[in-house]
Nucleic acid binder design. Structure first.
Lengths: 343, 343
DNA sequence: CTGAAAGCGCTTACAG
DNA sequence: CTGAAAGCGCTTACAG
């Protein structure tokens, strides 16, 4: 083992031709006779030649690798989008380098500079926002990128996102229509993701339109999405039900809703009778929860595909590219976790 | 955009030193005066220099990338192991290139040669077995690798695995102790994974030891784990309950068990009253299913960590490496999906 | 402590 | 159709 790998030179020596001829044979260059090509290909096969993409990429200034920065690989939402991205990238001849930011700007920054160092051709990212965000870093890199699940702001870039403001608005309206007034919005780290920001806007708008006073205490956010921590935060939230008298919770993800289910069960709070719950993302866990979880659905597969398409278009276009924005609208999938309150 | 990135040469020109001096400054080489080093670092920062790892890796013959080939990113088992692997790799200064084989030897082969082309330093793989397997390809590559979740055979390699034979044996014994005799083993593609092979062995052994006749028809396997397909296969299985009169199912993964839950619900089969179910992997979906799913638990995080450790040890050791095998033993986690049959 | 050179493995524009 | 050369951006053994 750890033998020196066979290179083009090795083949050239055996075939008694120049390296460049071997290269041409290997890369389907038309400027080569069928005869020598076949001979070289035969030798290459025999020696189990495997091209060194590092060298090729260095020379070509492209790697055919796309960097993907997601926030949490344990969240099925990201997993499903990742799957779509992988399929689409693969179909177009690109491969993925997957990174987990854990909603942590520092980790995100490290990964970004890793990806840049590796000379990826483009980056797909679910960015962490907030004051330490890395958007400028991205821009300065001169690598094409697409911001995912991020509502366009003044920052000029490609966006592929779902309108989470409308999602939250619809969900809260749905709850209000069923008699709920004291509704908790249970989101992730305050201001760190576009989703949490947008959902809060939608939440407030729905309440306001229905003349329901917005209570700060009902807008509840975790610090991180760490599993252990989530449990503690959820428990603390549910313990406040007696004081705050809320009857429903809209969660920023199905993962959060699942945590609510778990704590509620431990604490003897019955869903939906004593507490209605709406999840977000409509991941595969919803139907089998008890009761089945009503959730706001996003087109996870389409998001992934479109993001790849936009990115590859920019990569191909090069200099004169006009940023694109693709927006999806989410939709409530009704199941059994919301109850109609008696008047 | 698409400006030429700044290189060592650019810095050298400005600093009026040779490229090699810049390189030394940038890479903490002791052979450089503090003064010039500081000056160079300053310029590098100002120009936002970002090292081209392609060039460095080409020269160093190492990339600090580990290739990881899993079977299905939508299965939380792989996701949780991937997370552990990522953490551990990161801690040791390595990064991941993630690939999905989809239990498909051809896809696996493509990914393997991709990884080899990218000159990864090592490979962690949940291999697809069967006659088209790529084990020889791996061996010939001369890249260190670890076979994961694979019971050691005559093939000489590093292994990090869980003893699924014992897992299945224990689960079936558990069912037998509760009065079940007609037990289905619901596994993935026949012979394509070590788990399915080992589980079948454990299943048969448990039955035999209890003088229960093995019925071929009760050993049921899917062709692929595609979601749509899984649904159809599960439905077909459950439709046979009247004929085959089975009272329990041991599934190869929680995903499969979840599919059983879904179909059972649609078909009006009550779990566990009419059908007991045991899942496998003890993923996070178990506790919240209705009823909570009893599952065979594996140390997913440890598996991932150990695999990275073994791989990195081989990478460091180089030539004179002795293959290692690390074996874990699974354990049943009791919940509410198995009923005690009346005598 | 710094410079000049060679080389990692590949590709391609230029000759012939 | 083939060869010889230059270069992608970096690092390091060798001089001085």
């Amino acid at each position: 083992m750890t033998k020196r790998p066979v290179t083009i030179k090795d083949i050239a020596k055996i075939a008694k031709v120049h390296d460049s001829t071997v290269s041409r044979a290997l890369s389907n260059d038309p400027n080569i006779s069928d005869k020598t090509k076949k001979r070289i290909l035969g030798i290459a096969k025999e020696l189990k030649y495997q091209r060194n993409d590092l060298a090729k990429s260095l020379r070509d200034r492209k790697t055919r690798i796309i960097g993907l920065v997601i926030s949490d690989i344990l969240n099925p939402f990201y997993t499903e989008v990742t799957r779509a991205i992988e399929d689409q990238a693969q179909a177009k001849g690109y491969n993925l380098m997957l990174c987990n930011s854990d909603y942590n700007p520092r980790k995100e920054r490290n990964y970004l500079s890793l990806l840049m160092g590796k000379q990826v051709d483009g980056i797909l990212i679910f960015p962490v926002l907030g004051k330490d965000n890395n958007l400028k870093l991205l821009r300065e890199s001169n690598i094409p990128y697409v911001l995912m699940d991020t509502c366009p702001q003044d920052f000029h870039a490609n966006y592929v996102y779902t309108d989470q403001k409308t999602g939250a608005y619809d969900a809260v309206t749905y709850l209000i229509e069923r008699g709920h007034k004291d509704i908790v919005l249970y989101t992730g780290p305050k201001g760190l993701t576009s989703s949490s920001i947008q959902m809060e806007l939608g939440y407030c708008q729905a309440l306001t339109e229905n003349n329901i006073k917005i209570k700060k205490k009902l807008i509840y956010s975790t610090v991180l999405s760490e599993k252990d921590h989530l449990e503690g935060t959820t428990r603390a939230l549910l313990e406040k039900q007696k004081d705050l008298k809320f009857t429903a919770i809209l969660c920023i993800s199905d993962i959060f809703a699942k945590s609510v289910y778990e704590c509620a069960q431990q604490m003897g709070i019955r869903i939906p009778d004593e507490l209605s719950v709406i999840g977000y993302d409509d991941t595969y866990i919803c139907p089998n929860l008890n009761p089945p979880l009503t959730s706001v659905s996003q087109l996870k597969y389409s998001i992934g595909q479109e993001a790849v398409d936009v990115l590859l278009k920019e990569i191909k276009a090069g200099q004169n590219w006009q940023y694109q924005t693709i927006k999806f609208t989410p939709k409530i999938v009704e199941r059994g976790s919301v109850i109609q309150l008696k008047k």
